[in-house]
Design a protein around this nucleic acid. Structure first.
Lengths: 103, 103
DNA sequence: GAATATAATATCGTATTTCGATATTGTAAA
DNA sequence: TTTACAATATCGAAATACGATATTATATTC
């Protein structure tokens, strides 16, 4: 990440994007991290996994372990509350970006 | 702030908005904080002032003290480097929001 | 069927960030 | 020369982020 300011901006978004992806399909840490990297972003596993835990603890995600080729994956799906807060966050994000471009 | 997730999103944006406002006109802490509150956001002075310091230290802002009615204000203006990073941040923010709304 | 390999998750100690509260600054007015 | 006060600065505690390391659980190998 080129600059700390851009990273901070991204970190604020990351939680929203987790919910966004989990609303479309089940996600798990390793894959989610790799997809971020494909888009040029990066987040430490020491940040990502605790983030998942916190989002589940708060009731926005729900998880279930699954064995895939002998390896354990913890898949996360969004909850009803998660969907609600995601919609709010999307509106807020749009509004904040809008302010940057108006005028 | 209703929810921590929304707050985190906002906190990522706040640094960009500081630069955004400082690019339009000189800003100072007290006034900036009040304007945020008018828009329904909030940030502690214990966060805001160190943030200004860091942005100046990094070379994105430059400040000058001024006496207004016997009170000292530290006005911040954006620098050339600040403008550069602001443009990058605006693009990144737009892209990240765009992803939330596509499809 | 015991040992090994491996994808993935979990956690550890350290450094940084955020917070509310308190202290400090500098000048105008009393 | 004291007092008042807007504004900035800083403090200690709590939360977050990081890279590195440990743990988990099953397939595979011998």
């Amino acid at each position: 990440m080129e600059d700390k300011l851009l990273k901070d901006l991204f970190l604020g978004f990351i939680k929203v994007h987790i919910l966004h992806h989990a609303a479309k399909e089940r996600i798990y840490g390793q894959e989610f991290s790799e997809e971020l990297q494909r888009h040029g972003y990066q987040i430490s596993y020491g940040t990502l996994y605790p983030l998942f835990h916190k989002l589940e603890e708060t009731g926005y995600l729900i998880s279930a372990n699954e064995n895939v080729h002998g390896k354990v994956r913890r898949y996360y799906s969004i909850t009803a509350n998660g969907k609600k807060i995601l919609e709010k966050a999307k509106l807020q994000a749009k509004e904040l970006v809008g302010e940057l471009y108006e005028g």
